[in-house]
Write a protein that binds this DNA or RNA. Structure first.
Length: 890
DNA sequence: CGGATCGAC
DNA sequence: CTATGTCGATCCG
């Protein structure tokens, strides 16, 4: 069964249908509405032919509205839309507060960056984006000529993946449920998905592409990026016979033969082979060199230019698969992608590698066409009067004040026509998940078994790739289409059905409890595993397990209790796990908060980890020392279940311990506490430096604890210790590290536009920006924060001296103070608006030394100083969200 | 870290 | 009747 749940459904965002703004706004009085499509329909295609009527936008919208009105789905869409509207409102308020002064300053800053960007513009590459036209539909039409002249869509009554161009005239689009499509176009034929077939065709296409760029990057089944720079260089010297191709009519039906595009003949259909393929440079010869008799009649030779090469690619694709493709040729991926959209279907377009050509192309382009700018961003920008890319550029200063760093930087790149010039192979996978939609399920029993089934499938998939992850996420969508996710991170990686289910079950139980006595009424459930170990970490884990075992018998697991079978119903939470008060508290908190949106967010929790734990660490470290001195036995005692394991096979033992760990851990660590995290690190660390003086290790452990400690008080623990390289290394290597001064200019390598912007350039900038900034302009706390040991710093918030060896711990202290202070401050004052806009940032050590640069990114709009009223609304919001959670699933 | 959102296919 | 599935990234708390 699991193999049926195949991969992706091909839906391009540009081709999706959406409820347009005006549709939304007019929902209350639909009758007099004249909602024009907005983004709803973007046909712009061939005019109707052959009596294919199609529908105009108005009609389409009306039908869609009628079909949608009142549905739970639509209700939810409206709700989401309202949220976006609120975001926009916030943004507009923010905009109001911006002074001319600030704007000018921002303008200067941004323009400095523009110069830099302009200087780094790279036009030397040739990137090609290939996009199969209406892929799934085209395949189905190819394989069933009956469908050729009809409007068809691929998918099901509940969801369409794509439609052919006939159907699009009726407003039938990807991501539209089939039943609505049927209303738009009663004659619509809906063909079920057949992924195996698409995959096979896709493979054929990819074989061709690989010849032009062995490292090409496929994006799903129907499109790909190629870097043909090298190919073109070589191609220049290619003899003609390497560019010569024969028209192949063998595997086409009689009917299709007429349509096959023979050079010089008339093209039959607007989106069958177009004559354009053979325009200009392409020569067609009546070949006489005599290869074969029948097929040699038509021979084409392609030139050496980029256009010619791409025509060749498209020609070969069509010859091989009888499917057409569109293509874009440009100096970077973003442009190439937008280019391929230009002459779709079955066309191609090139942006020549000149700055002016790029800017011309960009100029009037609607921002929505840009990959990475979706429905929401479009709407937000539209609220600012930005629709085209040149407007995006004009407003660059404003945008830098309103949006997060990552966002406005990418906007800037877009408006300059900059993008990634090389194709980075996608890194290791970060997560794996499976989810399913079904008709309402509300019996807990059923929900559990469904959950288990999902875990089973996921486990199979994980094992196929040999992956184990530490975080399990449960996703639920209730019958009102509200989605929520619940995650839990455990200490040791999970991968088997039982391990995953143990966690997922608990998460599910919590959710069921939270709405009790009402049933949880859901229409979708999903399970995801993430937090995979990197290769590095795998090694460490091996090592640490080893030393772990050596010490087996005596190790005191103060917090790890021999696990009960975690198959028991975890929601009961009845059994106390003796010793550690930790879990008692955890449990109490969990139950207390089971109705709370933000459980465990209390101060108490943070306070709880601290000195005590570090004592434990030293203790453990001591024991490890002792045991390492003693001999290693052949018989290990599993430190978790305390059973003797006679095997000398490390692998086997590891597996056993892993199982035991997973068994007992998932039961007790609902969420991993930071305490536990550092404990784990300690282990790795100990084994890592096993060849060194163990006492050093212990010191380091203590230091490490201080570094990861939660409150400023931890700094006391370590103030006396001398720190060595290792300390800094460990701290800085910690994946979950807090922000440091340099980070404030943190450029998160704008991945939102991942494929299209230039990662290389950005990372270089990163390196530059990470440099120290202690000597620059004066700030409220302009100390030199090189984090030397023995520093005594004055917290700019509470004005108390803080002894600290770690910049991080100091920053953390400041954060804590800020959090305490802000609340009061905000409820009282609101006059310092100009400065408040960066309260948080400016106080932050090392921050804001470069003028008023917006450093703290915020999704959508930038956070500003909260006025009294805003603060009130903030509270209201949090109450509100609490309430919605309570009502969720009701 | 956990949760919500956006965006892509 | 009937509104997907999977993944990565960002941002906030």
């Amino acid at each position: 069964m699991s193999h049926i749940r195949s991969t992706c459904t091909c839906i391009k965002s540009q081709e999706r249908y959406w409820y347009s703004e005006s549709t939304m706004d007019n929902v209350k009085n639909v009758d007099k509405s004249s909602y024009n499509g907005g983004a709803l329909l973007r046909m712009g295609l061939n005019d109707n032919k052959a009596g294919m009527q199609g529908l105009d936008k108005e009609k389409i919208n009306k039908i869609i509205m009628e079909a949608s009105k009142g549905s739970k789905f639509y209700e939810n869409e409206l709700k989401k839309d309202q949220q976006v509207n609120q975001r926009i409102e916030k943004m507009m308020q923010l905009k109001e507060k911006i002074t001319q002064q600030q704007l000018l300053k921002a303008q200067l800053q941004v323009d400095k960056l523009v110069l830099e960007l302009e200087r780094s513009r790279n036009l030397s590459c040739t990137i090609v984006h290939i996009d199969m036209d209406a892929f799934y539909a085209a395949v189905e039409m190819r394989d069933n000529p009956e469908l050729k002249e009809k409007p068809i869509a691929v998918g099901s009554m509940s969801m369409l993946s794509t439609s052919n161009y006939h159907a699009r005239r009726f407003g039938v689009r990807a991501a539209m449920p089939g039943f609505i499509a049927k209303k738009l176009c009663p004659h619509l034929t809906i063909v079920p998905l057949n992924f195996e077939k698409y995959r096979k065709v896709s493979k054929e296409v990819k074989e061709i592409l690989a010849e032009y760029d062995p490292h090409f990057m496929p994006m799903g089944l129907d499109e790909a990026y190629l870097n043909v720079t090298e190919h073109l260089e070589e191609r220049l010297n290619w003899p003609e016979d390497k560019r010569r191709y024969f028209l192949n009519t063998e595997n086409t039906t009689e009917k299709n033969k007429e349509d096959i595009n023979i050079p010089g003949t008339v093209n039959i259909d607007g989106y069958s082979s177009s004559p354009e393929l053979f325009e200009d440079g392409t020569s067609v010869m009546d070949d006489d060199s005599g290869q074969r008799d029948q097929s040699l009649k038509n021979v084409v030779v392609f030139g050496t230019s980029a256009e010619e090469a791409v025509k060749e690619i498209r020609f070969r694709i069509e010859q091989k698969t009888q499917l057409t493709a569109s293509a874009g040729i440009a100096p970077n991926t973003m442009l190439a992608k937008m280019c391929s959209d230009r002459n779709k279907p079955n066309g191609q377009c090139r942006i020549s590698p000149e700055r002016q050509a790029v800017l011309d192309f960009i100029k009037d382009l609607p921002i929505r066409k840009v990959p990475g700018i979706g429905k929401v961003t479009e709407k937000m920008l539209k609220a600012l009067g930005i629709v085209t890319c040149s407007e995006l550029y004009q407003q660059r200063a404003l945008l830098s004040l309103l949006f997060s760093e990552a966002s406005w930087r990418s906007f800037l790149d877009i408006s300059l026509g900059l993008g990634s010039t090389h194709l980075e192979k996608d890194g290791e996978r970060k997560s794996m998940s499976t989810e399913r939609t079904f008709s309402e399920i509300s019996k807990a029993e059923d929900q559990y078994s469904l959950c288990q089934e999902l875990c089973r499938e996921l486990a199979q998939d994980l094992q196929k790739e040999g992956l184990k992850g530490k975080t399990v996420t449960l996703k639920l969508k209730n019958v009102n289409f509200e989605v929520k996710t619940r995650a839990s991170t455990v200490l040791s990686s999970v991968s088997t059905e039982d391990e995953i289910f143990a966690v997922a079950k608990m998460l599910l139980g919590t959710e069921i409890d939270s709405v009790a006595p009402h049933p949880l009424r859901i229409r979708l459930m999903g399970v995801r595993v993430s937090g995979f170990l990197s290769e590095e970490e795998k090694k460490y884990q091996q090592k640490s397990i080893k030393s772990f075992l050596k010490s087996g018998k005596e190790l005191d697991f103060s917090r790890l209790q021999p696990g009960r079978s975690n198959q028991e119903n975890l929601t009961k939470n009845s059994e106390a796990s003796s010793r550690g008060s930790f879990f008692d508290k955890k449990r109490a908190a969990r139950q207390l908060n089971s109705n709370n949106l933000f459980p465990n967010e209390s101060v108490g929790k943070q306070h709880f980890h601290g000195v005590k734990s570090s004592a434990n660490f030293v203790e453990e470290a001591n024991k490890v020392t002792d045991l390492q001195k003693s001999n290693v036995c052949e018989i290990f005692t599993c430190p978790v279940c305390f059973e003797e394991q006679s095997s000398s096979n490390l692998e086997e033992i590891n597996r056993h311990v892993d199982e035991c760990l997973a068994g007992s851990l998932v039961e007790d660590t609902v969420e991993i506490s930071k305490n536990d995290l550092s404990r784990e690190n300690t282990f790795n660390f100990l084994s890592h430096c096993k060849n060194e003086n163990i006492d050093d290790c212990k010191e380091n452990v203590t230091d490490q604890l201080a570094g990861t400690g939660q409150s400023a008080s931890t700094s006391e623990n370590s103030s006396g210790n001398s720190r060595d390289k290792k300390f800094t290394q460990i701290v800085s290597e910690k994946p979950h590290r807090e922000k440091q001064p340099g980070d404030l200019i943190d450029i998160p390598r704008n991945a939102s536009i991942k494929q299209c912007l230039s990662p290389k350039r950005n990372s270089q900038e990163n390196a530059v920006q990470f440099g120290r900034m202690d000597h620059t302009e004066e700030t409220s706390s302009s100390c030199s924060f090189e984090a030397r040991e023995d520093s005594v710093l004055v917290c700019p918030v509470c004005n108390l001296e803080q002894k600290t060896t770690s910049l991080m711990s100091f920053n953390r202290h400041v954060d804590v103070c800020l959090n305490k202070g802000l609340i009061q401050e905000l409820t009282e004052k609101d006059d310092c608006s100009a400065k408040t806009s960066d309260t948080e940032n400016s106080i932050r050590v090392g921050g804001l030394s470069r003028g008023q640069k917006c450093t703290k990114p915020l999704q959508g709009t930038k956070r500003s100083g909260l006025t009294t009223s805003q603060s009130a609304s903030k509270k209201a919001k949090s109450i509100d969200s609490k309430r919605t959670i309570e009502m969720f699933f009701k």
